[in-house]
């Protein structure tokens, strides 16, 4: 701070609090809605303070089937989301750290070609090539399966680049010393490189977990069997009923549950989250 301006500082605090309140408003209203019976909304009177249902709606959606359209509970959809998010995260981190290792620490024919092929994935997000990707998955018989939900999403140029960037800062003396001591490429990777990459792995974990958990279009395309529904796409099914029958309190409870894991990860691992966000954009 360059000078004292108490009024300006007070103004800043007030505006920040208002900003936070505006950002939090939708979640506040959603939380309030979970504590009211559904007829309250139908009558058009929208409450801004908690009702007397407590956590019963949460308990209800978690254990019982989410809606008439899907015969699975929110708990089982959350389990599916967890499997998908961790599958994508583990897969993405492993294959990108291995490919970055290959590109930085080995000299072999076709190295640049491999690098450019990986780079191409940046230009081909699922959203822009929906139909043909669906056809490939269908012809490989991967519809309605966890392999179909995860494997096509684990190729990653950004993760590979991040590890490549980091590996290039590893001093060459380290590799020479390891070789003199008789360490082969596999020992060097597990005993030296992997422990050095811990913070980068944590940072990427946060970003990739959010990415995996929040997938929407992909599960929407390739799952028709409700046993594979993820929670993020399950909400849409709960909304797709005639207007008067939308169970808003249940939908809001499901919504809160669906955003909880990634929000907890971001807030709990804030330092790694910020690092991951900044590094993946380089």
């Amino acid at each position: 701070m360059v000078e004292q301006r108490p009024w300006l500082t007070a103004f800043s605090h007030i505006m920040l609090v208002l900003g936070i309140a505006a950002v939090a408003l939708p979640v506040w209203v959603a939380l309030v809605a979970t504590t009211h019976p559904n007829y309250v909304f139908v009558s058009g009177r929208v409450p801004l303070w908690f009702g007397d249902l407590g956590f019963t709606v949460f308990a209800d959606v978690l254990c019982q089937t989410a809606s008439r359209e899907s015969d699975v509970s929110v708990a089982s959809m959350m389990l599916n989301s967890t499997i998908m998010a961790f599958g994508i995260t583990l897969g993405k981190l492993s294959i990108s750290i291995l490919s970055a290792y290959a590109v930085v620490f080995f000299r072999f024919p076709g190295r640049m070609l491999a690098f450019w092929l990986v780079f191409m994935t940046l230009m081909l997000p699922v959203e822009v090539r929906i139909m043909p990707t669906f056809q490939v998955i269908a012809s490989l018989d991967m519809l309605n399966s966890f392999s179909g939900l995860t494997i096509p999403l684990i190729a990653s140029a950004t993760a590979t680049f991040l590890f490549r960037q980091f590996f290039m800062t590893v001093p060459p003396e380290l590799l020479e010393a390891a070789r003199i001591d008789g360490a082969g490429p596999i020992k060097f990777f597990f005993d030296i490189l992997l422990p050095l990459s811990r913070t980068n792995i944590a940072a990427l974990f946060v970003i990739t977990f959010i990415y995996g958990w929040n997938q929407y279009l992909w599960p929407l395309l390739i799952t028709t069997d409700s046993n594979y529904y993820t929670i993020v796409m399950g909400i849409k099914h709960m909304l797709s009923v005639p207007d008067g029958e939308v169970a808003w309190n249940r939908i809001m409870a499901t919504t809160v549950l669906a955003m909880l894991p990634p929000v907890v990860v971001v807030v709990g691992m804030q330092k790694f989250f910020v690092k991951g966000l900044v590094e993946t954009e380089k």
Binding site: I95, S99, F106, F108, L117, L124, I151
Partner: peptide, 26 residues
């Protein structure tokens, strides 16, 4: 980085999962 391993097939193996997925699904 100048220091590197001389293997020829190991790096291809390391890159294979990423490349296969990229080719098949992208």
């Amino acid at each position: 980085n100048n220091a590197s391993f001389g293997h020829k097939w190991l790096p291809i193996g390391l890159l294979a999962p990423q490349l296969v997925i990229t080719l098949v699904f992208f």
